[in-house]
């Protein structure tokens, strides 16, 4: 393949035309680059060229895809089994975590509702956890994780986000027992929100509803009426939801109406409850007004001064006596 030396391939020197062509092409490339960088109309060219380019990519990608297919085809059985095992474990773990997350989210929701109750009513409350449930024969009680050391007192009302749950019946040093409103031994003075009728709601033997056994025959009670605490009896503060009337029917004796109500609180679902610290006003006669006598400087002599402390102590003890006998349910 010997070649004759000609003009187009000089041994040492280039020709001017070749250099000129190079310069033209280089300039063209530069212009193209600048246009492309400045985001001019060149994107249209690229766009239309994409139709040609795309199959080229596919073609170029074939070897890589082939290698991947081969590696899957020849991957040994043990490794696949191992991988499968690991993935299974991971899945199990992830599912467990997911479930826990769901329960935590639910708890969060409940706590938020409780907090809302606390804020909206501006109550002085204490959050407590339910740590035990006693659903024995006709006993519907729960145990809370707070006791005398935490300031729990006998008779404190217990509420949740939706309504009244019950009252503290027994206080131990670190725990306390709450009698639920659905306990057959429990009674709570209520008022029907719509009509203002006062009555008493008792627990029931089934433990999931309230009974109002002695409504007058002419009483205005309908299904769906809401029951609120009336505040009478001095144990529960007034205005808390207690339940909704489910059914109204004449009693077997025909002398009263008997209504069934569903408790408003989530009796069997709550895990966190609130202990109310603002006790209702103690009932009984109002404390006597401090006697207003004539001004002290008008009092004759020393005897009046000696009588004053006596009178003051009497007025102070009267409310204490009243507070010492709060109304007991039933």
């Amino acid at each position: 393949m010997a070649r004759t030396r000609d003009e187009s391939s000089p041994l040492f020197a280039g020709n001017a035309a070749g250099t000129l062509r190079l310069i033209v092409y280089l300039a063209l490339a530069m212009v193209l680059m600048v246009l492309d960088q400045r985001n001019g109309w060149l994107w249209r060219v690229r766009y239309s060229a994409a139709a040609v380019v795309e199959p080229a990519y596919r073609l170029a990608g074939l070897p890589a895809a082939g290698v991947r297919t081969l590696s899957v085809a020849f991957a040994d059985r043990q490794r696949l089994t191992e991988q499968n095992q690991r993935l299974r474990e991971n899945l199990l773990l992830a599912n467990t975590k997911l479930n826990r997350m769901a329960s935590v989210a639910e708890q969060n929701q409940r706590l938020k509702q409780l907090l809302d109750t606390q804020h909206s009513l501006d109550l002085h409350v204490q959050l407590a956890r339910v740590i035990g449930i006693d659903m024995g024969a006709y006993r519907y009680r729960i145990t809370l994780n707070l006791g005398a050391r935490d300031g729990v007192k006998l008779g404190q009302p217990v509420i949740d986000a939706h309504g009244v749950m019950g009252q503290v019946r027994e206080v131990l040093p670190t725990t306390s027992m709450v009698m639920l409103v659905t306990d057959p031994e429990h009674a709570i003075p209520v008022v029907i929100e719509r009509s203002g009728l006062r009555t008493v709601a008792y627990g029931s033997r089934s433990g999931d509803e309230l009974t109002l056994p002695n409504l007058p025959l002419a009483a205005d009670v309908r299904v769906g009426d809401r029951l609120l605490t009336s505040g009478l009896g001095g144990r529960f503060p007034p205005g808390f939801p207690v339940g909704d009337i489910l059914a109204v029917a004449p009693a077997a004796t025909g002398m009263f109406l008997v209504a069934q109500a569903r408790p408003a609180a989530d009796i069997d679902r709550s895990a966190d409850v609130l202990l109310l610290h603002d006790q209702a006003e103690p009932d009984g006669p109002p404390s006597p007004a401090t006697p207003v006598g004539p001004p002290r400087d008008l009092a004759p002599g020393k005897g009046a001064v000696a009588a004053d402390p006596l009178r003051a102590s009497r007025t102070a003890t009267k409310p204490m006596v009243a507070a010492a006998r709060p109304g007991t349910p039933r």
């Binding site: 041994l11 190079l22 063209l28 490339a29 680059m33 492309d36 060219v45 690229r46």
Partner: peptide, 21 residues
């Protein structure tokens, strides 16, 4: 960038052709 490799290949081929012999 459009024109980048065109520039490079032009320069490369120019030199190669110049010293081809």
């Amino acid at each position: 960038v459009l024109g980048e490799q065109a520039l490079r290949l032009c320069a490369l081929v120019f030199i190669a052709l110049r010293f081809r012999a």
